[in-house]
Amino acid sequence: MAAPSTEQTVNVSNGIPPPSFDLPYPETPETITENLLKLGGTIQNTRHRFLFTKLVEHLHQYIKETSITTEEWMNSIQFLTQVGQTSTPIRQEFILLSDVLGVSALVDLLNTPAIPGATANSVLGPFHTDDAPLIENGESIASEGKGKYLYIEGRVLDTEGNPVPGALIETWQADETGLYDTQYPDRDGPDLRGLLKTDKDGKYGYRAVVPEAYPIPGDGPVGELLVTLNRHNMRPAHIHITVDAPGYRKLTTALYPEGNVYLRSDCVFGVKESLVVKLVEVTDEKETRRRGFPKGNMFKLLTFDIVLVKQ
């Protein structure tokens, strides 16, 4: 049996002295807010000072307007604690919370407003990883048996219609059961993920699988929250895509096949009308082989031109 640790936790002052002004004792709700705002006024970074001030104003106003009880506040703290404890390097429950509260979509829309002719943004989601393999155009991001065949192709253009060669496309999706590779406990590497570059004419193409609608994880605090709020936890079928090219604003988006019942009530508010796409059924064995699919005589074809905005 290992000997108990003799190390002792030591709390150390951060070295910041008391403020140069006196604060009244916090004996009323108003005084607590006023004192915190006065202390916030000493923050040197202008942007940080502004963000902190607005956070305090709105949070304290929410507490006062709702007359939140001690029990309710402690439950809220416990909920956030559970969100943190549920998060792992490959499962980001905090991103999921941001998504279902509409914050991810709101921040994205405010920071990347729609530009006529350009491809719209969509949410990144909590299942992005950093280990997608590099593939060549025409190759597959999916191992065999992950779903019905899908071929995705198109061009990457600028807003004037010029091709963007060498643009780096990253793509990832769930399989036909609605699970991402990171949700399998025996994951030994990336699947249904890939990186590829556009050719000299801005063209791209790769093999994937037809996406299906799926529920976001319901086994954590965010899933429980949606039940409490009487909201479904479904996402419409989609394929994630990011595009990065020198001189252009990086695009984070997703493509949503038409006809799905959850398109207008996506639980993370990611769908935009311009991102709803049509899948065309191709029933030709020769064409199926030409596209690189190993068996069968049919696949779905998704054609989509991606338009980037110059920086």
Rank of each mutant, 00 (worst) to 15 (best):
A2P: 05
T228H: 03
F299E: 06
E7T: 11
Q311N: 14
W172I: 01
R291I: 13
G218R: 10
E281H: 15
T69C: 14
F94Q: 05
G178N: 00
L36K: 05
A254M: 00
I135M: 04
Y62R: 11
R249Q: 15
L229C: 04
L110R: 13
N75E: 15
Q85N: 11
E71N: 04
T31R: 06
R235H: 13
A213V: 04
D191L: 01
G194S: 08
D305R: 07
A114S: 12
K54F: 10
S98L: 11
K286N: 15
G102V: 04
R49A: 01
G41L: 02
E144N: 05
H232N: 10
A142N: 10
P24S: 03
G102T: 12
A118T: 05
T303P: 00
H238E: 00
L55Q: 13
F299I: 11
D130E: 03
Y62A: 12
N230K: 15
N233Y: 09
E176N: 07
P19H: 05
R264N: 15
L196N: 07
Y151V: 14
T228K: 14
H128I: 08
T66C: 09
L134G: 00
L96G: 08
R91F: 11
Y204D: 08
W73Y: 15
R155C: 01
A208T: 09
D108M: 12
L150R: 08
I306T: 09
V282R: 09
D191C: 02
S265A: 08
I32D: 05
I68W: 06
K64G: 05
L80T: 03
E34T: 02
I77M: 05
H128Q: 10
